[in-house]
Design a protein around this nucleic acid. Structure first.
Length: 276
DNA sequence: AGTGTATCCTGCAGGC
DNA sequence: TGCCTGCAGGATACAC
């Protein structure tokens, strides 16, 4: 469910609210959410102090300090995962997966209806090895129009599916892939290797712009997404094609169509995104 | 190696 | 009301 802007919003909230706090106890209520053994996870995270909280791709990375055999806690939210910071008095939500009791009384809760998310403790070395297999961070300076063009040249996959592959460029999921391609006026069905330089340049700019704007609006809430304070994102109203099947294109007025690529819905304008 | 498909899981909307 | 189908922000394990 959460793509780069949503994860970034969550990370900023966590950095503000839980950084520096000690974890006093950990309870795993749904062991299938834990990569590895749940008891080991509980013991490994308990009594650690939370340091820096950062984002890599769609992963939330907690640096653990003091009393932590593994010094990274990695959380991937899957489709419906949430990390919520709550006051001790508040009622715990349904589908609670993991409870972190924090110094000062508040709790950090991992909640996940569909349980596609995963939590994992790793050494910094093991995490770095995993991270190195991931693609460009789209908001880093190293991600350039040329980098995008060169990478795309090696793949015959449709550009929409290509964008969602985290080994090339990270953070773009089903919503922002459709949105970026609309902004770049490129057909989602076009083979990645057939992008022209001009198209690659437009797509690069569209990815950066749509992700940056979505972060400013604190993400997109369609159904499930909430930030760490339980708040919805406001970018939903700014979506131009995603979820708008049959509605008029904001540019040319022709109806937005929905197709299926790799088992996922793609939304686009047949007129504005003609190039194939 | 690259590519397409199935699978994990629950909830909700819409059709009958 | 109930039952069915399809769909939902992700990632990976397989087959070819």
């Amino acid at each position: 469910m959460p793509e780069l802007p949503e994860v970034e919003t969550i990370v900023r909230g966590l950095a503000r609210d839980v950084r520096g706090l000690r974890i006093e106890a950990v309870t795993v209520l749904r062991p299938d959410l834990i990569e590895g053994e749940a008891g080991e996870f509980e013991r490994g995270a308990a009594r650690a102090r939370i340091g820096t909280v950062e984002r890599r791709a769609k992963n939330i990375v907690f640096h653990l300090e003091e009393n932590a055999p593994d010094d990274r806690l990695i959380v991937n939210l899957g489709m419906t995962g949430r990390l919520l910071v709550m006051d001790p008095a508040s009622e715990e939500p349904a589908h609670l997966g993991v409870r972190f009791q924090l110094e000062g009384g508040r709790v950090l809760l991992y909640q996940d209806v569909r349980r596609f998310g995963r939590l994992q403790l790793l050494s910094s070395e093991a995490w770095e090895a995993r991270s190195s297999a991931l693609g460009y961070e789209p908001l880093d300076a190293a991600f350039t129009p040329t980098a995008l063009y060169e990478l795309a040249r090696s793949s015959r996959v449709a550009i929409k599916s290509w964008l969602m592959d985290q080994r090339r460029v990270v953070g773009v999921g089903n919503i922002y892939a459709s949105e970026a391609l609309f902004r770049a006026r490129i057909s989602p069905r076009k083979a990645a290797r057939r992008l022209t330089r001009a198209e690659a340049t437009r797509l690069h700019q569209a990815i950066v712009e749509v992700l940056t704007e979505a972060i400013e609006f604190r993400g997109t809430t369609l159904l499930d997404y909430r930030d760490s304070a339980g708040e919805k994102g406001d970018f939903s109203r700014r979506l131009r094609v995603y979820g708008r099947e049959g509605e008029p294109c904001v540019v040319c007025g022709s109806p937005i169509v929905r197709i299926v690529q790799g088992g996922r819905s793609t939304f686009y304008c047949r007129v504005c995104q003609r190039s194939r």
